[in-house]
Design a protein around this nucleic acid. Sequence first.
DNA 1: TTGTAGGCGTTATCAC
DNA 2: GTGATAACGCCTACAA
Lengths: 347, 347
Amino acid sequence: MLNLCNNIVMGKRITIYDLAKTLGVSAGTVSRSLNDHPSISPKTKERVITVANELGYKTNKFAVNLSKQKSNTIGVIVPKLNSIFMSTLLAGIEKIANEAGYNLIISQSLESMEKEKINAKTLYHSGVDALLVSLAYDTSNFDHFAHYIRNKIPLIFIDRVHNLPNCSTIIINNRLAGFEATEHLLAQGCKNLLYIGGNIKRNVYCDRLQGFKDALENRQLKFDKTNFLETDLAPNNVDTVIRYMGNSKNPIDGLFVASDNFAVHMIKALKKENYKIPQDIKIVGFNNDPISDLITPTLTTINYPGYEMGILAGQSIISHLNGGINLQPTNAITLRHKLIIRESTHK
Amino acid sequence: MLNLCNNIVMGKRITIYDLAKTLGVSAGTVSRSLNDHPSISPKTKERVITVANELGYKTNKFAVNLSKQKSNTIGVIVPKLNSIFMSTLLAGIEKIANEAGYNLIISQSLESMEKEKINAKTLYHSGVDALLVSLAYDTSNFDHFAHYIRNKIPLIFIDRVHNLPNCSTIIINNRLAGFEATEHLLAQGCKNLLYIGGNIKRNVYCDRLQGFKDALENRQLKFDKTNFLETDLAPNNVDTVIRYMGNSKNPIDGLFVASDNFAVHMIKALKKENYKIPQDIKIVGFNNDPISDLITPTLTTINYPGYEMGILAGQSIISHLNGGINLQPTNAITLRHKLIIRESTHK
DNA sequence: TTGTAGGCGTTATCAC
DNA sequence: GTGATAACGCCTACAA
């Protein structure tokens, strides 16, 4: 009892050797007991555990990691933390990882490939057991993931993905979603559409554009390059877009915006310019951000299951790490999306 | 050269011993060279580094951690990831940590003390060098932080804080902000106010309430318990609040809501009930969420510098860890807030 | 069922 | 300036 107090108060770290000594057994036995190894008698286990608690033993993860060459840690790289979609995604991942006893090391690329590279390298050196990535806006080279693949560290892309050998992706069918969004605008009577999206190097924007084109073609309408505007979807670009629309030969009466956030800023600006929504112009967004149902008029959008994607990403990676299902053969997991019709396209 | 290829292709991890062998020096020399130790000749350093690159040497963090008994990792516990305030805060923290070469292990308590306890314990065992915490909704006991304090692992509370010995806090002056919000409503002519806030065990809600009371008192108005409603600020509680307001003896003409998110849901519901804002009722929120400037009418609110708080928290903890300024004497850092007047209180 | 001893890869303290 | 050698704390064949 005195010993206990001394150890704790002195802050001296207690190791399995200390336990071994006080118990009169070997360190190996202590280690095995603590890890519930089958070859140890229940009685011994109990004794060990009791004393461990009494002495305030804390297992040293650093030593465990070194010994096992794994860290029980999953790395995550997202473009930015402060977006509702990304944080919802992370919430899903964290929930699963936490339940499975894994820690999450989270970093943001701030939409820059350079930072993404650095983060990938850092996480690699930190010894993460797996990596989850949603690509930056401008990532065009993928060498920074080569280490992972070469060393068979599982790598999953989420949402903003790229096809790399032996890497899974978790996505929705952006092309089909884009088609449905556009078809809805056409069905509502729009004649002259504009698609506003981000960098078409990114699958999400490229696929939605493709769906947009599909929908036009499906109605024998021709796609013209004036029907498409690429922007980085930063709110301060709204004015440029409004000006672009004002200069259009045929007035634009339907907008498909690849992000709810940008769409709501467009709505605000259009209202200021005295556009009537949906009478003069109809708008469809993307993501089903909470804001889409709060703005006036409420915004028709595509539901994007961020939380579920996170959950799924977490589950996939964990079960892989635990030696359950092997992800290798799995190429892509596609989640269900849904068009949500609201006031911005429907009086 | 052959050796190089063999090593890399075979995936065999290269250690300082391998380098030592090929270089004909000792492992110690290699280690020192790699760490730019002053007592090594520039020539040797160069040789070592060259060979290290050639062989594709990667330092093993697990071993470094074990040897140094530190992880270059900072733990973070937030109530939830998927809130714009929290993710903005995290964005700030991550930026600083990343720049300083620290990793962030992020976990969420999901507003539950139990989960917060578990997370605190897990992070402790993971060997984080420091911990940043924003408390859960219902945390009333703080024993789970005792380990940190006892072992002198720096601990900083952010936003939702608690005063613990030797722990710093990063906050805004919620009381003063609450005062200003309320005073603004009164100055706009409101006669019968309602404050809607969360658990008053949490400093943020308690202090704002205090400020609310201060403002009433300042004008010789008396505070009545019917002027205050405690709720968990979940959007689905809006109906209850609306009903409460309907049953009020004197019609409520001013609302101070401790969260923008809840406030905008209130606005939506009130509009549906045909309240005119700001004519019939004026509303002030809290946080300056992006949505507050997008809703109709735009919402008067208190600007809450989440990103700056994150930056500051990061800087404080890093400079402490790097042995710079000592946080011990620092008790609380208070950031500047600001009342932002918009349409919901002002025609 | 338990003990022994080597290994995990670095760092750090002595010597020389 | 460099080389031995002992930590760091745990895991795990291999023995007993």
